[in-house]
Design a protein around this nucleic acid. Structure first.
Lengths: 344, 344
DNA sequence: CTGTTAGCGCTTTCAT
DNA sequence: ATGAAAGCGCTAACAG
C-alpha cells in the first residue's frame, strides 16, 4: 500500500498542503466544508501524520524516556505500568532503557538522549556509586528530568519518593515489637538516597529503644550470590541477628533463600521484613511481611508531573512529592505470645 | 547550554555542513585531517545528531515498538529485558505499549504505529477475542512484524514461541505420573494460540492414559476475581479434580489463593503445575511446580530477527522459531510413595 | 478562507 | 576533497 502524506491528500482534493494541514488540526481559519472533505479523505486513506516530520518543526517528539535499573524488578515494572498508562492517555510514547545498575550504562544512555530523541526523562538511579555529571549535563541542557524512588539530591527538579525514613522506622519498630532484639539492616548500596533514608529510620527505631549498640548494617550489593554470601556470613557471625530488615525486595528473597538452604526457621529463629512489591508475598513460606510502595501511583505521578510541564512548556519545578508506603505484617515477622499480627 | 547542530560545527570549523556530515559518518571522501578536526569539536561540544532529522531523510527511526498485554507479568518483563538488551547493543530504541488484553487498545496502538514512528513491531497478542484486521493492515503496509508467544496464525511473518503442545503434554503427564487421576486444565482464552496448543497437549496426555473421559477444561478469563470464582466452583463441583494444570502464571497463583482460602492442601488434595516465570516459585508454600519458558531468550530472538531484517532492509521471513520450555517439578505436584520428585 | 513560502536538522546527489 | 542545493513531511508566518 502506498504511503499517504499531506501532499497526497492535497493533490487528491485539489487544495494546498497547508490547507490540509490546518484542516487536520481543526484550525479556525478553515471552512467547515473543507475540513469535512479533508477529514473524510484522511480517514479513508488511513492517513497518519509522520510524527518526526512534525517533531522537527515543532521541536517536540511526544516521546519520553524511562530509565530504570531493570524491568524485571516488580517495583519498576509497576512504575512503568503507571507511566505507560498516563502516557497512553496523554498521547505520549514511552522509550524504555535499563541500566542494570551500571553507572557507565546510565551515563551512556543519558549521553544518547541529549540528541532530542525524547522530550523528557523519568529516571530511577543505578545503584553503582556515581558522580552525577551525566545528569547535571542533561539538566543544564534543559532536558526535563523527573526522578522517582532513587533520586539525585544534587539536581533541583521533581522527585517522587516514598517516606523512606518512616518506612524504615516502622519496619524496624515492628520487628522489635514482635520480640526481635538484634535487628540487622540489609543495605543495597549505601550512597543511594533510598538506602540511606531507610537506614536512618532503622537506626532511629533502635535508638528509641536504646538498642543502638546492637545495630548492624550489612552491605549486600546488587548481585544475588554476593548478597547470599553476605547474609550467610551474618547468620554465622558470633552474635547473629534474630531480626532482619531488608531494604529492597531482592535482599528479602535472598534472606529466604539462605534461610531455606541453612534450615533457619522464619520467624521462630529470624523475623524478616522487607521492602517488596511481590504479588506472591502472601503465598510464600512463611508469608513475607512487606513494606509496600505505591509503585504504580509513583509512576503515574512522575509521568503526570512531566507531561504537565511539557504541555505548558514550563521547566520542571524543584519539588519533592512523597507518597506513603504501607507496612503489611505477615507470618515472617510474627512474634509469639503477643497475638497481634494476623499472619496473612 | 545552547543546542549544537551540524551548522554550529560547520561555522566553528569554517567548513560546509555537508563536509561535517560526511566526516561524522567517516566517509572516504573526506581527508583524515578534516575528519579529525570535526570529530574533536563534536566530542568537545557533546554534539548529538538529531535522530528525527536524519530519520526523515533516511526513512528509518531506529525505534521499534513492543506491544504486550502487560509489563507487570514476569514473563513479559523478562521478554522486554531480552529485547532491550539486544536493542541497546544494536543501537535501537524500544517503545513500550500495553494492551491490558484489550483488543480495542491493541488496535488503537497499531493504528497509531502506521505513522512511521517505528521501524518495526514486536508483539504478543491481547487475550480478548479478536479479528486481526489491525494486524493485517500493518502487514500490508509493509511494517515489519514479529510475534512472540501469543502469535497470529493468519499473518506470515516471524513467530517466536515455545513448544506449547509438548509442554502441555509433559505437565499433564507429570501430574498423572505423580498420582493425579482427574486433571483439570485452566484456560485463559481458548482462541489464543498458546492456550489452544497447551490444551491440545493436555488432552493428548489424557488420551494416552485413556483418561479422555475425565478431561475438564475450565475457562477462567483474564480477571483475577473471575478466575478465582471459576476455580472455586471447580473445587466444589460434584467430581472435583485432584490435579490442576494452569495454562498461565496468573491462574496458578489464583489456584493457590483459592486453595489457601478454602484450606485445600496442595499437593495432598490437589496437585498443581502451572506455566510460570516466577522468581519466587521455589519459595512458595508449597514450592510451585512450573513450566518455565525461556522468556529472556525469546525476547532476544524476536529482537534479533527484527533487527537483522531491518538492517538488510529485507522483509521479515515467514518462519517459526520454537524454543523449549522446561518442566520444573517441585512440591506442589509431588506424589506419595513414589519418591521421584525433589520438592525443590 | 486559502495558498505561497521558508524552514526544522540532516543526508545525498551533483558540481567544482 | 569540499561545497551548493534539493528535499524528507510537516508547520507556521505571511500574503492575498
Amino acid at each position: 500500500m502506498a504511503k499517504v502524506d499531506l501532499k497526497t491528500l492535497a493533490r487528491e482534493l485539489g487544495v494546498s498542503v497547508s490547507t490540509v494541514s490546518k484542516a487536520l488540526q481543526d484550525s479556525h481559519e478553515i471552512s467547515a466544508e473543507t475540513k469535512a472533505r479533508v477529514m473524510e479523505l484522511a480517514q479513508q486513506l488511513h492517513y497518519q501524520p509522520n510524527p518526526y516530520a512534525s517533531s522537527l518543526r515543532r521541536q517536540q517528539t511526544r516521546n519520553i524516556a524511562v530509565i530504570v535499573p531493570e524491568v524485571i524488578n516488580h517495583f519498576f515494572s509497576l512504575a512503568i505500568d503507571g507511566i505507560e498508562s498516563v502516557a497512553q492517555a496523554s498521547h505520549y510514547h514511552v522509550l524504555i532503557y535499563q541500566t542494570h545498575d551500571s553507572r557507565a550504562k546510565e551515563a551512556s544512555i543519558c549521553q544518547h538522549l541529549q540528541s532530542g530523541r525524547t522530550d523528557g526523562i523519568i529516571i530511577s538511579l543505578a545503584a553503582e556509586p556515581q558522580d552525577f555529571t551525566h545528569l547535571l549535563q542533561m539538566h543544564e541542557r534543559g532536558i526535563p528530568l523527573v526522578f522517582f524512588d532513587r533520586v539525585c539530591p544534587l539536581i533541583d527538579t521533581a522527585r517522587i519518593t516514598t517516606d523512606d525514613f518512616a518506612s524504615g522506622f516502622n519496619a524496624t519498630a515492628h520487628l522489635l515489637q514482635q520480640g526481635a532484639k538484634r535487628v540487622a539492616y540489609l543495605s543495597l548500596a549505601p550512597h543511594l538516597s533510598i538506602d540511606r533514608q531507610r537506614q536512618e529510620g532503622y537506626l532511629e527505631a533502635l535508638r528509641q529503644q536504646n538498642l543502638t549498640a546492637l545495630a548492624q548494617v550489612v552491605y549486600c550489593g546488587t548481585h544475588e550470590t554476593e548478597a547470599q554470601q553476605a547474609i550467610g556470613q551474618l547468620l554465622h557471625s558470633p552474635h547473629p541477628p534474630d531480626g532482619i530488615f531488608a531494604s529492597v525486595e531482592k535482599l528479602a528473597l535472598a534472606t529466604y533463600a539462605v534461610c531455606q538452604a541453612q534450615g533457619w526457621q522464619i520467624p521462630q529463629r529470624l523475623k524478616v521484613v522487607g521492602f517488596a512489591n511481590l504479588p506472591t508475598a502472601h503465598l510464600l513460606n512463611p508469608p513475607l511481611s512487606t513494606v509496600v510502595q505505591p509503585a504504580f501511583a509513583m509512576g503515574q505521578q512522575a509521568a503526570q508531573t512531566l507531561f504537565t510541564c511539557l504541555k505548558t512548556r514550563r521547566p520542571i519545578p524543584a519539588q519533592n512529592v512523597t507518597l506513603s508506603a504501607v507496612l503489611e505484617p505477615r507470618g515472617s515477622s510474627q512474634g509469639f505470645g503477643l497475638g497481634k499480627t494476623t499472619g496473612r
